[in-house]
């Protein structure tokens, strides 16, 4: 047997997507309902009393940020639990003993996690159109940012799932690092609205670049240049891939 184990990739991908179908309420309904609540509270209740931000209504302004928030959290949680669960139940032995390369395993798990994150992101986008006027000036770039971000943070989540030795560790980085960075990353405001030195400090927050690039694809303007956003996403993805390559080469937390 040589070449590419397509049936193996498909088997993992299909099983992961089946898990989503089994847990449809938790996987899809929960993030959608949460985001709708954001629109009601921030978009309608508070946003109706606010001026326009960056040339659009506040409700429309937060749409890209909310989608990005969902992409990050869903990508990370889907991928981390996908690889942590086989470790926890010890079914990982089957993956490790199968004729499937590490990159094929990553492709299957990360692909499934990213697919779920993108689907939820698109559902939220469609949901948003019921509440606020949304326009997409650069649809190709919007899709590019959507896919790249979902893949990158699913890779990051996969790394967290391999590193984690307990459910507590699994939750610690998403809740203590990613969520604060996301909330402070311009999802609900433009960093131009911040006083100094917080505006400068914000430029060290990687999520600012993601939200800004994604918002640019919607409304043609962002807090930082679109090239900087793109470079950040690609650099982070390369870092995750390099770290994963090391993990599989050394068998870190997978093989003894």
């Amino acid at each position: 047997m040589s070449g590419f184990n397509l049936p193996g990739i498909w088997a993992i991908y299909r099983t992961e997507m089946a898990r989503t179908r089994r847990t449809i309420l938790q996987s899809v309904a929960t993030p959608v309902i949460t985001t709708v609540l954001y629109f009601i509270v921030f978009g309608s209740a508070i946003g109706s009393r606010m001026h326009q931000v960056a040339g659009v209504s506040y409700g429309a302004f937060i749409v890209p940020g909310l989608i990005m928030l969902t992409l990050l959290t869903q990508g990370i949680s889907n991928a981390s639990i996908a690889i942590y669960f086989p470790k926890f139940t010890r079914t990982i032995f089957e993956i490790l003993s199968a004729p499937i390369s590490s990159m094929e395993v990553v492709l299957a798990y990360v692909g499934a996690a990213a697919t779920k994150a993108i689907l939820i992101g698109l559902i939220i986008l469609v949901t948003a159109t019921f509440f606020v006027p949304v326009q997409i000036m650069h649809p190709a770039w919007m899709i590019a940012f959507l896919v790249l971000t979902a893949l990158t943070f699913s890779l990051f989540g996969f790394l967290i799932g391999i590193w984690a030795d307990s459910f507590e560790q699994l939750a610690v980085i998403p809740s203590l690092v990613v969520t604060p960075l996301t909330f402070l990353g311009g999802a609900f405001y433009s960093i131009d609205m911040l006083p100094q030195p917080w505006r400068t400090v914000s430029l060290f927050n990687p999520v600012v670049y993601l939200v800004s690039g994604f918002r640019w694809s919607f409304y043609g303007s962002g807090d930082v240049g679109v090239a900087a956003s793109l470079i950040f996403v690609i650099t982070f993805m390369v870092c995750c891939l390099a770290l994963l390559s090391w993990v599989f080469r050394t068998g870190y937390r997978l093989k003894s």
Binding site: P7, R14, A18, E94
Partner: peptide, 14 residues
């Protein structure tokens, strides 16, 4: 059935 089919696929068999 699903878990047995999963194993077969994982090992590259249709």
């Amino acid at each position: 059935e699903d878990t047995v089919r999963f194993s077969r696929g994982l090992f590259g068999k249709p």
